[in-house]
Design a protein around this nucleic acid. Structure first.
Lengths: 191, 191, 191, 191
DNA sequence: TATGAATGAGACTTCATTCAT
DNA sequence: GATGAATGAAGTCTCATTCAT
């Protein structure tokens, strides 16, 4: 019971204030438990953070793995994956924010490693789809991991924009912009 | 004299450790000045940070403004801008790292505002180019700010990948991947 | 059953880490019982400590009382008592360590009192033997309790040395050094 | 200024309550400085402790080295050294208490090492005097370091007794008891 | 212009203890 | 008899900031 409340409070606070600014004191207060309880359930701050990120990413991975139908065409696969990622990115925006923007510095090396590993798995996943496209000749010869990094960057950038200006653009617009850009670029006509 | 040393040391340290992890103590030591000097030249930590980011971004903006030839075609403009951004991103990777990854949280609101403003200027700049393309019919009807956000995200993602795997891909590959994706997407053939 | 395991674990840990450094958590783990069990069997940490020291010292006292033959000569009595103390000191070095080095500070007054009392009993015991010697004229006129304190200090110092350098000196050498010093000093020839 | 006040307060408190029981908070209060000042002048608690012990022992060593006249006879040297040690032990009883009773456990390994080293120097010093006596044939063949350990233990035990019962025995009695015991034992007449 | 000793709020963490089961 | 989740007071330490010089 206590543990769950702590995790929830921590997700919110880490997302709201970032790793260093979110204090254990504040997490305890928000969770409605005593400060000591945090240390009963978790080794320390960094392990609490790690737990949240790991569990979160695992949930996302599980959902994506389940929902993506790999028998679809490359086109469909890309549209699906972009759609799912956008949905997840926005649904779990707190978590996404943590994973994409709070990884940089000051977190224990070990935790950072695990998170990078999980992030890397996703990269590999998308790179795999692209590689398939290259093999079948649908996609020009590119470094698939670089391309996947670019696509994730774009997802990140667009979702960030959406969250900060969510009255000016719809979720569907975001999805279709990304998909169509991946599929046929932004510029459509040669001059 | 002292001020310059402080700024240099601060850039290095902020980039290396992030805003919260870089301490005034360490900055002073690295700069080879006394701690009190930091407060002689700057109001406090956040203002020091702000100064660095502002000056840095202004330098970048100035260079981009100067080098981009707006009389070129949309194609060329996009290739140029992508090229310049990649170069700058990699050349000033310390600063870029700060601006793109350390902005999120825990910095004084006022500072954050100014930085966001500067970032926003860049977005507007690129969105303007894209809008021109839309007006001329070279670009399909998109939300140009969303698109610019996506492109910056892709730049960020790709440069990050490059910095972490710089033996597997060349700077030129990064540039041409982004340019060509913007221009004609990743998937080139319909199925 | 549980109680016995706790006592054993506590002896080991108190001896290994000292009173303050040995945590109830660690004792519980080492004993293989739940933390709550410690408080089922003992009022708290200090009472657990007291129990151990009391029981330990009582065992030692009992053994010494039983083995010392008070009908022997002063010489023999001193040799015997030194021999027994050295043996006990080394055999129960954990406990001895606790009693001689961890008593000083930070333990509840009441517990400290009882331990001092027990220690005092030993002092009285040895002082009694010496007083007998004084009465019989074998020993010069000294403050017997002071002398006994000095002898215990010497025992402590020598045994400590032995435990830290036990390859350079034998247990027998320790015993005979102390005995002979008590009996005839270190310097044997006037100059 | 601040530093000196801290050191004084720390000596008193460490001696009074022992290493673990003396809190940095309390030291700061007793010294009349802010908590942060402790960490401005010292790396941390253990280094503060180390500083005190090291400086204290060095002072003692210096005094002893200066006052002991090595051209005296073994008899005189021993009487002198015992006299000086007793004086110092009682004068610096706080410090002595720390060094002899608080070394055991829970202090950082590095600090412990240095203190043991300093203690060891004293042991070596006294062992050297005894070795001289052995060489000259005034002292029977003993392990000089063991003997020195025993003598220090006796000093410790007797001074402790004196401090706890200082109305029943004089300082001079303590000195002469130890000296005469070293010189000719406690038991003076064979039976 | 520059210094550096001093500060104090607040951070993370430990741990003896309690209590409902 | 025994458990273990939960507690909260207290501890060590960090660090941006101030100020007399």
């Amino acid at each position: 019971m206590s543990r769950h409340k702590i995790v929830q409070a921590a997700i919110e606070l880490f997302a709201l204030k970032g790793y260093h600014q979110a204090s254990m004191d504040e997490i305890a207060i928000r969770a409605g438990v005593a400060k000591g309880s945090l240390y009963y359930h978790f080794t320390g701050k960094s392990q609490l953070f790690q737990t949240i990120v790991s569990e979160g990413l695992r949930q996302i991975t599980t959902r994506i793995d389940a929902e993506l139908n790999s028998s679809a065409s490359i086109h469909e696969q890309i549209q699906n994956i972009v759609g799912y990622y956008v949905d997840l990115f926005l649904e779990y925006s707190d978590l996404a924010h943590i994973v994409f923007h709070e990884l940089s510095n000051g977190i224990e090396e070990e935790v950072l490693m695990e998170i990078r590993q999980l992030r890397n798995n996703h990269l590999t996943y998308m790179a795999g789809i692209l590689a398939e496209g290259v093999k079948l000749g649908y996609i020009r010869d590119i470094d698939c991991r670089l391309a996947a990094s670019g696509v994730f960057g774009m997802l990140d950038g667009c979702c960030d924009y959406f969250l900060r200006n969510n009255s000016q653009v719809t979720r569907q617009q975001v999805k279709s912009f990304i998909s169509s850009t991946v599929l046929s670029g932004i510029v459509t006509k040669n001059v």
